[in-house]
Design a protein around this nucleic acid. Structure first.
Length: 663
RNA sequence: GCCCCCGUAGCUCAGCUGGAUAGAGCAACUGACUUCUAAUCAGUAGGUCGCAGGUUCGAAUCCUGCCGGGGGUGCCA
């Protein structure tokens, strides 16, 4: 039992006599924001005072009177309007530290009611190279899986691959028409990647050629309208003036949007125009080969759709090609997962559910949830303008259908109590509808949560879109992270052999990359920058790894036998204030883990670990272990070091980050 | 049009089920390596928490309006 739950338990008994549901008041008990106020503060007397119509300070006094705290609190004080400030008893802290020291789980109890979670994350479209946008889902999902497991839940990780969509129609079409057999033989992945891009390019070309006149016309109209609005005299009426201003702004926005659609937008870093219909056309026209291919395949868009449909209908040739291509595509993404050290329990992609889709729709129809609208099978929901479409007018199924089949499978096969979807925020409406339909359909016992995260933005603050043409390839980003870490490792540790440098740079580089993502609140948008993702100074994984390595240095230099000390621990000594501070932080590890799971936010654990490492760095500079003065203090400090190191190691491990003994 | 998210230090971000003087990191400046790893530590400086109202003992946090940015919006995923 950690300190926070201990305190809450005791308050709970007294509070439940006063209010119906004490949980809201219990949430107001938290670690003190300011060390001067003690270790924990209970802020429940103020709202309670209002409710009971008594002065809050009086209520606080009665609470303190009624609740037994003196066996583990050194002092209980009432401050300000009615804050109850608790300071933990040193002996109690030391006891907890000793318990953690001798426990493999660092004193963190397993949950009493383990649940089965399915975590759906990463889910890339195979056949497209992974880019920086994929890392968020992958890293956050992996961390949540590991935190859930550590606290005692069953967590099933499932990579719901996009392995059945239009991109395979594109590759199949590309293979049938444009394959370079020699290149395919020597490196299937590269050639398939080339074909994907090539077909995409030709499709974009035709789409652009078709849309350009239309868009140019729209732009002209919009511009004319804008000119007209701007030339009109300003209305004198206040609200009219406002309206006119708004209309001008809307007009200007439209002109800007259309201009970007047609001409592309400026990439500030390179100074080039990217995206845009004109670019799409120019790209093809600048290559004679591409131009003649484009002319020879005017209906490439519909042809690709047809290849996709044939695949879905079980056409033997396309099915065979799909089966041939898939392993290469999987091997390609697997290489990245290996480097990131990420494993999945299951990799059940969209293709896995294909045979079930008709049943799903039939069942929904039979239960009377569906309605045919414009020849598509739809489910209409309250509070949503648009329905969820489960079957297109041409009979094809959509990802909504697959998602429903997936929920069914996960509930029936795995008896999931909760299913977490670690997916981009932009799909929140899709998931809101999906969950509502699933609940209607009968899956209303389990928790379905969209663990959404912000968009990856480019340096210009604009969303990082694939079509902008300048995505950062994920694998090259990994290379860069390791390369930068390697430079520092060589500088710092010239005496080590070069294979050690390689190992260090891999662990430091990948750790930095993961931490950069995890330490940020997942719901915020993510501004991509090399600087941030590759940093090894400040609040980074490197800082935590470094703290760990320093402990190992101390153990080496003092020639301490940690095994023996753990087997026969001494009482902790708080010689310096920092030792008590570090001790309190150490016994709060379990609280941090609990808090991560309240809202599925790994950044809370990062914050905790960073604070812990900061305290350790202070301890390190203030408290010598080797020259502690007395043997008792030396052993106590060794114990403190050991516990810190193991907490950092475990904390990083559940975030998917490794540590090093030397760096 | 409708719906959702965001706006906090020069930069990148924490903090948001209301709590005590708004916190980190980077960048800047000052100081600390014959010492258990300086990938570090100590310190200085930097803020009308987009703006205006409201709710109350108390608002970065909740409500309303406005300004600015982004996203979504029936057969893509």
């Amino acid at each position: 039992m950690n300190a926070l739950t201990e305190i809450k338990d005791r308050f709970s008994q007294s509070l439940s006599g006063l209010v119906d549901d004490p949980s809201q008041l219990l949430a107001l008990i938290r670690p003190a924001g300011n060390p001067e106020h003690g270790d924990y503060q209970a802020n429940c007397a103020m709202p309670l005072g209002k409710k009971l119509g008594k002065p809050p300070r009086e209520v606080a006094g009665e609470l303190v009177e009624a609740i037994k705290l003196d066996d583990f609190c050194q002092s209980v004080e009432i401050a300000g309007p009615g804050f109850i400030n608790l300071k933990l008893d040193n002996d109690w802290i030391k006891q907890r530290l000793n318990a953690a020291l001798t426990d493999e789980r660092l004193g963190v109890a397993k949950v009493a009611d383990p649940r089965t979670y399915v975590i759906d994350y990463s889910s890339p479209n195979v056949a497209k190279p992974m880019h920086v946008g994929h890392i968020r889902s992958t890293v956050i999902g992996d961390a949540l899986t590991k935190v859930l497991r550590f606290v005692g839940h069953q967590a099933i990780s499932d990579n719901h691959l996009g392995d059945w969509g239009t991109q395979f129609g594109m590759i199949i079409y590309g293979y049938k028409n444009f394959v370079n057999e020699e290149a395919y033989q020597s490196s299937p992945v590269n050639e398939l990647g080339r074909l994907y891009k090539y077909v995409r390019q030709l499709m974009d070309y035709h789409a652009a050629a078709k849309n350009l006149p239309l868009k140019l016309e729209e732009l002209e109209t919009a511009q004319a309208l804008l000119n007209k609005l701007e030339s009109e005299p300003e209305p004198t009426d206040k609200s009219e003036k406002k309206k006119a201003k708004k209309a001008i702004k809307r007009g200007a926005d439209k002109v800007k949007d259309l201009t970007e659609t047609i001409y592309g937008h400026l990439n500030e870093e390179t100074g080039n125009l990217v995206g845009g219909l004109k670019q799409n056309i120019a790209k093809v026209e600048s290559s004679p080969q591409a131009k003649s291919d484009a002319e020879a395949h005017p209906e490439i868009g519909t042809a690709v759709q047809a290849e996709t449909a044939k695949l879905h209908e079980g056409d033997p040739e396309n099915k065979m090609l799909w089966e041939e291509f898939l392993p290469s595509c999987l091997a390609d993404i697997q290489r990245i997962y290996d480097r990131l050290d990420i494993q999945f329990d299951h990799v059940l992609g969209e293709s896995f559910y294909h045979d079930e889709l008709a049943n799903v729709v039939n069942d929904l129809e039979a239960k009377g949830f569906t309605q045919v609208s414009d020849a598509a099978v739809c489910i209409f929901l309250e509070n949503y303008e648009t329905p969820m479409i489960v079957q297109k007018c041409d009979g094809a199924y959509l990802y909504s259908t697959t998602d429903l089949a997936t929920i069914k499978y996960r509930m029936e096969q795995w008896s999931a109590d909760a299913c977490l979807y670690v997916v981009d925020f932009r799909q929140s409406e899709h998931f809101a509808k999906l969950f509502e339909v699933a609940s209607k359909w009968g899956y209303n016992e389990s928790e379905l949560t969209h663990v959404s995260f912000g968009t990856v933005l480019g340096d210009d603050g604009k969303p990082f879109k694939t079509r902008s043409g300048d995505t950062v390839n994920l694998e090259r980003l990994l290379d860069e992270a390791e390369a930068r870490a390697l430079m520092v490792a060589r500088e710092q540790n010239a005496e080590l052999p070069s294979e050690r440098h390689q190992e260090i740079s891999s662990i430091v580089g990948i750790g930095a990359l993961k931490y950069a993502d995890l330490s940020q609140n997942r719901s915020s948008d993510y501004k991509f920058s090399y600087e941030k993702m590759l940093a090894t100074k400040g609040n980074t994984a490197t800082y935590l790894q470094y703290a760990y390595a320093r402990v190992q240095g101390i153990v080496r230099k003092t020639e301490a036998d940690m095994e023996a000390i753990r087997a026969n621990p001494v009482e902790f000594v708080f010689d310096q204030p920092i030792e008590r501070q570090l001790g309190v932080k150490l016994i709060q590890f379990g609280e941090a883990l609990d808090e991560v799971l309240v809202d599925y936010k790994p950044n809370i654990l990062c914050n905790y670990l960073h604070e812990l490492a900061q305290l350790f760095a202070q301890f390190f500079s203030q408290c010598s272990v080797k020259d502690a003065g007395s043997e008792a203090l030396k052993i106590s400090r060794l114990q403190m070091c050991d516990l810190t190191a193991r907490t950092i190691k475990t904390g990083l491990e559940v975030l998917g980050i490794k540590v090093l003994d030397k760096m």
